[in-house]
Design a protein around this nucleic acid. Structure first.
Length: 427
RNA sequence: GGAGAGGUGGCUGAGUGGUCGAAGGCGCGCGAUUGGAAAUCGCGUAGGGGUAGCACAACUGCCCCUCGUGGGUUCAAAUCCCACCCUCUCCGCCA
């Protein structure tokens, strides 16, 4: 959520933000108009409350003196009725206002390039060389099938399309990747490990920005109130500090959360229909930071290098993309993607997305800190980034480590996590 | 699921209709004391919003709201009533 006061003070940057994103700027104007009405209504209702509070105190005194209060009571009751009317109007205005505010995306950092789609993302740097193969490398889903480690049929039978069953060494490799990533981030990068709930309430999803606007992307349980299946550990872990005032001394706070992630992939019909790239359920190790406002962009660089380290240790070629305004997403002010090179598909595939959400989520979730002892609480900045998406990393390993005979070498960094296994050969 | 207890400030904990945004304690800040510190003493210390002063911010004044959430009763609600959520204890069921 954006700062309503900032919008009132100077709406122009906010209109510009929306138009850069290719969106309609009318919510800003509707907000400003509604806020005028809110002000009038609120002032009137508060004035009346003041009158009533004063009168009520007087009645209290009269009553204690044993005097008749019938006349005054009736008078004040009328004021009360009028206050109720105004309140009803006010709450209607406020509901609409917060609905509008809740649906306006974050303001981007000045570095964020123009452009409405991923074609305008900017490559910042890359790591490693695309590996040379003396044969034609195949996509990971073919390797998964021939090696007997990904059971596509089984997944369809159990659940449907866009699910996977990992089997044998494939399951072990997935588990190894999770442990490898968690160990790296907790032992080397100073993150505290979190294993969060996979179901969350609507307040939680609101704070991180999935609700109310993107409900169709989520799975939701029946029952009242419903739960939502988390689309990323960012959601529960960021909410650990919802409605809290963090001791300023503790910042930055860094968490590494492993979780399964659930996404409906509404609107992705036909895209990435095969393999591990786009499924309804996948594993991810997520990095989450809470920082002082002035630290958040440094933290984004640091977090990005932590995620990059995973690919570097696995020796998988990747590039770092600066995400353009149209591809930025709702909550982020600046975002980097890491894309690995998939030789079997001859394309770059996103394996990590790292965002500085500035105070956008913090305002929605009232996540604050005390800058100094006895100072007023201020909003923290929140950041999140994949470190990494495990299924896609597994695909990256398979495609980059495949051999002509159909076997796959296990990256050296993962062998300690697989009881020394050096390769996966066809069953 | 059944029975009971309870949700109050950064924390703890009093408060059963008005003078309560709220005693006491802890913590924290400032000051006194000290060579310095500890101890002690004094003062201060919730959050949000509106409005006026103001170019803005800072600050100051006035006002409103907030004692789990939402309704209700009342001239007036932390306090009474209803619903819901959450926590704890016991019982039942269960991985």
């Amino acid at each position: 959520m954006l700062d309503p006061r900032a919008i009132k003070q100077d709406p122009e940057p906010f209109r510009y933000n929306l138009s850069r994103r290719g969106m309609d700027t009318s919510p800003i104007d509707e907000f400003l108009k509604l806020d005028e009405r809110r002000k009038e209504t609120q002032v009137e209702s508060e004035e009346l409350r003041n009158v009533r509070n004063t009168a009520s105190k007087e009645i209290g005194i009269l009553k204690r003196e044993g005097k008749d209060i019938a006349e005054q009571s009736a008078e004040v009751k009328k004021i009360g009725d009028r206050i109720k009317e105004l309140e009803a109007e006010l709450s209607g205005i406020e509901a609409r206002t917060s609905e509008i505010l809740a649906c306006i995306p974050n303001l981007p950092h000045p570095d964020v390039p123009d452009g409405l789609d991923e074609g305008h993302n900017v490559e910042l740097r890359s790591f490693g060389e695309k590996k040379y193969f003396s044969f034609t490398p195949v996509p990971h889903w073919e390797l998964g099938e021939s090696l007997g480690i990904i059971d596509q049929q089984g997944a369809v039978k159990i659940s449907g399309t866009r699910f996977v069953v990992m089997k044998g060494k494939g399951a072990a490799l997935e588990r190894a990747l999770i442990n490898f990533m968690l160990d790296l981030h907790t032992n080397e990068h100073g993150y505290t490990e979190i294993l969060p709930p996979y179901l969350a309430n609507k307040e939680t999803l609101f704070a991180t920005g999935q609700l109310p606007k993107f409900e169709e992307d989520l799975f939701k349980t029946t029952g009242d109130p419903p739960f939502y299946l988390i689309p990323t550990a960012e959601v529960p872990v960021t909410n650990l500090y919802r409605d809290e005032i963090i001791d300023g001394e503790l910042l930055p706070v860094r968490f590494a959360g492993y979780s399964a992630c659930f996404r409906s992939e509404a609107g992705a019909a036909g895209r990435d229909t095969r393999g591990l790239t786009r499924v309804h359920q996948f594993n991810k190790v997520e990095l989450i930071s809470f920082t002082r406002p002035e630290e958040s962009y440094n933290e984004l660089e640091r977090m990005t290098s932590c995620a990059e380290k995973v690919l570097q240790l696995l020796e998988i070629p990747y590039r770092v993309m600066l995400i353009c305004i149209g591809d930025l997403g709702f909550s982020a002010a600046k975002k980097y993607d890491l894309e690995y090179w998939a030789p079997g598909q001859e394309r770059w595939v996103e394996v990590s997305s790292l965002s500085n959400c500035t105070d956008f989520q913090a305002r929605r979730g009232k996540i604050r800190f005390r800058p100094e002892t006895n100072a007023k609480p201020a909003l923290v900045h929140t950041l999140n980034g994949s470190g990494l998406a495990v299924g896609r990393t597994l695909a990256a390993v398979l495609e980059n480590y495949q051999r002509e005979d159909g076997s796959v070498e296990i990256p050296r960094a993962l062998r300690p996590y697989m009881n020394g296994t050096e390769e996966i050969t066809p069953a």
